[in-house]
């Protein structure tokens, strides 16, 4: 056995890149749900006391934080497969601030739970509740900032030689936040459309939710203009998809159309896909000359890949069953 073969890629780079993109979009969708839940908590703490959706939002927030982390593990895995050399070097160059993400995650996650307990104890908004909401938001921003920093730091054949300006990281964070906001708008809108159609929820709550989603989508799609050198093709895709979902949302404000949520959701997925493609294209442009996927040694592990595919299919079937269990449980609660 040639020892060098042991370092060959276990997967063709194109497949790894495709899986990276797919799982990154899923990660962004859950991040959007988390952002939506955080917005709702801000509304609960600083807005009306009798917020309609505190309980579902609490569940959504906890689930979203958990699934965002879990869904984020897969792109983190494929980034290491594809760009390990750059990713590790940039992580080492950043050092302790990179490791601090573990602390941000712990504080942010536990603050979500603490907010719920505080809300129940005080029966509504409270000073401590506001602190917990702010803590979670700050932690999410800090995590986004550090990831953006690592991404920019890794866009070099020698990450340790470049000092990435924090202002540039901030600019990148606006783009990343914009993508999360697009997804959050779609989630809020989806919830509003569902409420609008179930005929049990007050119409005002449903309309407010759709309007919130429309605002988020509009702002987030427009903000992509502000972030700079990310390529016109990507802009057109993002804006096209973003405004398509926006239009679907606006229609939903005036008409009770169950199907209105689907084009909005699909357009959001398309927008996020555009952002991810743009992000990776930018990386490949920056690493051109040092990284060439065509020349990387590949020794595919198709047997292990087959195991993954089988488990994935079984996992999806189990998740579908779990969702059906949840749907039946909710129906039983309503009747």
């Amino acid at each position: 056995m040639n020892p060098n073969d042991l370092m060959a890629l276990p997967v063709p780079p194109a497949l790894a890149l495709g899986l990276f993109g797919l799982t990154f979009v899923v990660h962004m969708l859950f991040l959007g749900l988390l952002v939506a839940a955080l917005w709702a908590r801000v509304g609960a703490e600083w807005g009306k006391k009798d917020l309609y959706a505190v309980e579902p939002l609490h569940r959504a927030g906890v689930l979203a934080f958990s699934t965002t982390i879990t869904a984020g593990v897969a792109p983190l895995l494929f980034v290491q497969v594809l760009y390990g050399k750059y990713f590790y070097s940039s992580s080492i160059s950043i050092g302790f601030p990179w490791l601090a993400i573990v602390g941000y995650l712990l504080v942010g996650f536990y603050s979500l739970y603490l907010w719920r307990w505080r809300w129940e104890k005080s029966g509504g908004p409270s000073g401590a509740g506001k602190v917990f909401v702010l803590l979670t938001i700050l932690c999410v921003i800090a995590i986004g900032f550090t990831y953006s920093w690592n991404y920019l730091q890794s866009l070099s054949s020698a990450p340790w030689t470049q000092a990435v300006r924090h202002s540039k990281v901030g600019q990148r964070l606006v783009g990343y936040g914009g993508a999360a906001a697009i997804a959050s708008g779609a989630w809020v809108m989806w919830l509003g459309h569902s409420w609008r159609n179930d005929r049990k929820t007050p119409t005002g709550a449903a309309i407010a939710s759709i309007a919130g989603g429309v605002l988020a989508l509009g702002w987030a799609s427009s903000s992509q203009f502000a972030i700079g050198d990310w390529g016109m093709a990507g802009w057109i895709l993002i804006l096209g998809a973003g405004f398509l979902s926006l239009a679907a949302g606006i229609i939903g404000l005036f008409r009770r159309i169950g199907l209105a949520r689907w084009p909005a959701a699909l357009a959001t997925v398309a927008a996020l896909t555009g952002l991810v493609i743009q992000r990776e294209s930018y990386r490949l442009i920056m690493l051109a000359g040092d990284y060439d996927s065509a020349t990387v040694a590949v020794r595919p592990q198709w047997g292990a890949f087959a195991m993954f595919v089988v488990v994935l299919l079984l996992g999806i079937a189990t998740l579908v069953w779990l969702l059906r269990v949840v749907r039946d449980a909710q129906r039983a609660m309503w009747t």
Binding site: M7, A8, P10, L77, G84, L314, L319
Partner: peptide
């Protein structure tokens, strides 16, 4: 970790599915 990731990417991906479930 470079060696581990390259040898076990599909094991980790499989574990990820179990973890989601």
């Amino acid at each position: 970790i470079t060696v581990l990731i390259r040898q076990f990417v599909w094991a980790w991906a499989t574990e990820w599915v179990f973890f989601i479930v």
